[in-house]
Write a protein that binds this DNA or RNA. Structure first.
Lengths: 120, 120
DNA sequence: TTTTCACTTGAACAATTGCTCAAGTGATAT
DNA sequence: ATATCACTTGAGCAATTGTTCAAGTGAAAA
């Protein structure tokens, strides 16, 4: 089954069997999409800083703005994103809204990735 | 030191001390940037599929194109990106270029993130 | 009730991203 | 030499992203 012509695109499959084996062991499309979504969520410096901060302590929007150095509005937009992704939760105390992490796995994901960047 | 006026932006710091403590325990700007870069790299479905595939087997550009269902050119562009990020390496065998993973940590990062998406 | 404060929200905008297309490279086959 | 094949590359383009700005909301103080 090696070196057959693909009828549609005209590309020769160098190794159809290998491709088939990989396909069998592949996560389903939906899981891949969710994996990518999770990585994308952490792939923006502002959002990552928010998560890193909340990893240490519960904080209000104003604190996060001062700490990270971007506008309250920008922080709020990103917090909504993270809230929709169910990574953070919040509680209201008078006028102040406190955000905290609503996830157990993120610590491990981040520390594993820290190992990665430190050893490269 | 709580509830002081910030002279510049007019925002009240709800908790300056807490912000200071977080700041002390924060990774430096450069590490945060590299962390975000790593997550961003895995945050695109096409690139993630390439990595997931190479996690199983060494493959050529043509195989990856057939497996993932995007053009050879698109795959090649993403492989260059991943090569620059030193996540993949390649070897030439005649006309065919085989790509494989050049990283040990990525397996752990991905499987930890799989736990995350499966339990949410 | 009115004002103030902490935050949210939607629109708008520039910057970035991932793709396609067409041309180009390097290695083998003819 | 010439052609073919596997892949690379740069330009161009539509879609997405992260931010700002201005207006709006909800809670508490005046």
């Amino acid at each position: 089954m090696t070196n057959n012509k693909a009828p549609v695109c005209g590309i020769e499959f160098i190794n159809e069997e290998k491709v088939a084996i990989v396909k069998e062991n592949f996560p389903d499309e939906n899981e891949i999409f969710e994996l990518a979504e999770t990585f994308k969520m952490l792939g923006d410096p502002t959002r990552l800083k928010i998560v890193l901060a909340l990893l240490i302590s519960e904080l209000c929007v104003c604190d996060l703005s001062a700490l990270i150095g971007v506008s309250v509005s920008a922080i709020s937009h990103q917090l909504r994103y993270l809230k929709n992704m169910r990574l953070v939760k919040f509680r209201r105390e008078g006028k102040v809204v406190y955000y905290s992490l609503d996830d157990n796995h993120i610590v491990t994901i981040i520390s594993e990735t820290q190992k990665h960047v430190r050893e490269n």
